[in-house]
C-alpha cells in the first residue's frame, strides 16, 4: 500500500510543479514598433483582424462566486440588452482600417488578410520573450507576406467592477484587445501592444432604456483606443 501512496504523492507533486511553473512564465511586455523592418521597400505586410467573440456586453470582474456573478449579471441585464441591440461592430471596423492606414505610412505593400486557421489552433512556438508563442512562420508562403499584423479585439461594451455582490462603481465604457506584428522569417515580434480603455460615464449611468452616459463613454473608449494605436504605429 505504501509504495502506491508514495507514487500518488510524487504524481501530485509533479502536477503541481508543472502547473506552478506555467504560472511563473513571464508575460510578454510591450514591444515598440521596430522601424528596421521597414528599411526594405518591398516589404509586404498583411493585416489580420480578429473580431470579439461576443456582442457588446458588460464585462463583470470581481464577482467571485457563482451566486455573486448571477447577482452582478442581473444588475447589468438591462444595460446588456441595450449594448447588444445598439452597438454593432462597425466602429471596430474603423479601428481595423486605422491600423491598415497607419502601416501604409510605413510601407506601400499593405493588405488585409484572412488567417487560414484560428490563432489558438496554430502550432506552439518555443521561443524566448519577444517571440510569438504560436508558430506563424508558415504564413509567409501561404499569404505571401513578410510581416503579419494582428489586431484582436477581445472585449467591448462596458466594464463593471464588483466586490462579490457589491459593485465598486458604475459600469464604464470599455474596449480591450491587442495589436501585434510578427516577422514571419523569425517569428519575432516587431510590435506587441495590449490596450484596455475603461471610461467613467459622466453623471448618472442608470438611465434605461438608452443609457446615454455609458453609451457615450463607450464611444470615448473607442476614440482613446484609436489615439493609442495612432501613437503606437
Amino acid at each position: 500500500m505504501k509504495p502506491l501512496f508514495a507514487k500518488f504523492k510524487y504524481f501530485v507533486v509533479a502536477i503541481l510543479a508543472i502547473t506552478l511553473t506555467a504560472c511563473g512564465s513571464t508575460p510578454q511586455t510591450t514591444v515598440a514598433l521596430s522601424t528596421n523592418v521597414f528599411a526594405n521597400p518591398d516589404l509586404k505586410v498583411g493585416v489580420a483582424y480578429i473580431e470579439p467573440a461576443s456582442q457588446a456586453t458588460t464585462h463583470i470582474y470581481g464577482a467571485g462566486c457563482l451566486l455573486c456573478y448571477g447577482v452582478a449579471s442581473a444588475l447589468t441585464a438591462q444595460l446588456d440588452t441595450h449594448l447588444k441591440s445598439n452597438i454593432d461592430h462597425s466602429e471596430l471596423e474603423n479601428i481595423k482600417n486605422l491600423v491598415v492606414e497607419r502601416y501604409k505610412l510605413k510601407t506601400k505593400n499593405v493588405s488585409l488578410v484572412e488567417l487560414p486557421v484560428p490563432v489558438n489552433k496554430m502550432k506552439k512556438f518555443k521561443g524566448e520573450l519577444g517571440f510569438a508563442n504560436k508558430d506563424f512562420r508558415s504564413l509567409k508562403e501561404k499569404l505571401d507576406i513578410d510581416v503579419l499584423v494582428v489586431l484582436e479585439i477581445t472585449e467591448h461594451g462596458a466594464f463593471r467592477s464588483f466586490s462579490n455582490y457589491i459593485p465598486n462603481g458604475d459600469p464604464q465604457g470599455h474596449i480591450s484587445g491587442l495589436v501585434y506584428g510578427i516577422d514571419l522569417k523569425t517569428n519575432a515580434y516587431v510590435q506587441y501592444m495590449k490596450f484596455s480603455e475603461t471610461i467613467q460615464p459622466s453623471g448618472e449611468w442608470d438611465e434605461p432604456p438608452t443609457f446615454p452616459s455609458v453609451t457615450t463613454s463607450y464611444y470615448q473608449a473607442l476614440e482613446n483606443t484609436k489615439q493609442t494605436i495612432t501613437e503606437a504605429i
Binding site: 470581481g62 467592477s161 462579490n164 457589491i166 467613467q200 453623471g203
Partner: peptide
C-alpha cells in the same frame, strides 16, 4: 467624476442564515 472605489473584500459569515446574509450584504453595500 470617477467614483470607483478599490475592491473591499469581505468574508460573509456562512452560519448567519438568510437574514444574516442579507444584513451582511447590506452593511457591505
Amino acid at each position: 467624476s470617477n467614483t470607483d472605489t478599490a475592491a473591499t473584500p469581505v468574508m460573509y459569515h456562512g452560519g448567519a442564515g438568510l437574514v444574516g446574509l442579507a444584513l451582511q450584504v447590506g452593511i457591505h453595500s
